[in-house]
Amino acid sequence: MRHDPTPLRPADDIMTTPEADAVLEDAAAAVAGLDALDTPTTTTRPRWRRAMATGLPLFVAMLLFLAVWQLVWASAITDEFKLPAPADVWHSFAKIVDDGQVWSILWTSISRAFLGFAIALIIATPLGLLVAKVRPVRAAIGPLLQGLQSLPSVAWVPAAVLWFGLTDATIYFVVLAGSIPSIANGLVSGIDQIPPILPRVGQVLGARGLTSARHILLPAALPGYLAGCKQGWAFSWRSLMAAEIIAAGPLLGFGLGAYLKQGSDFNDMPTVIAAIFLILVVGIGIELLVFRPVERRVLRARGLAGA
């Protein structure tokens, strides 16, 4: 009898007659069969083929670019000091690698970008949560936050120089002004895109307030938040370069931006182009090495599009 206090018997011993057993076995088989038929099938391409599919076209494109560059240079359409040969740029790059200067340049810029990005995360995350969940806050600063995203952070540089002088504070201010809006807006849109059923589920499962934020809201918003972080990184890197190029001074160290500025001051085109490439490579490299794998893992765990 059901009302005997035996809340959960194993599926197979509810009934004891042979016919009943047969029926249960039948049900079990039906369920198992249905599961086997309905389970989504996944096909995975081998890793090397994926790498080939993404890597090869990129490699070919870069080769073509170099070939065209070499060709344009060889045809001598423009002056040498405007368009140096690829080999000259390479030599310029090899020079700072040889004397070890490249590591201190890269470290100066990358450590700044990371520190700035980390501070931006700490500020933007609670800010995004507030804007997403507290209606008056959203009405008050939501539009501003979105507007700030389209304000080029280089516009902050002159103001920051007047406020903080040629110090690291100027650099960090510009980096934060560039990346905080992106990260906060990413979190806001991540939260806005949560299917309404999930918070409801959290509620009926017994999640309230902060527990709900931790177990439902934040994990559900994670894809949007990560996209925001990725964009925030790009903005923080961009802003940093703008700040380093414009604000140069003895207190500021010698980063990638300063390296580029120096090349430009000396009319040294190979150095300028080498610096531009380095800035590009670091920006893309961090995205590929740090953000892409994290994002991929998160999206794949949720079965989201071809990640």
Partner: peptide, 17 residues
């Protein structure tokens, strides 16, 4: 009857599962 499916993610399961 999902004893062995505990480690799967929702998107790896059918609607009935």
């Amino acid at each position: 009857r999902l004893k062995d499916q505990g480690d799967k993610r929702p998107h790896e399961l059918s609607g009935g599962m």
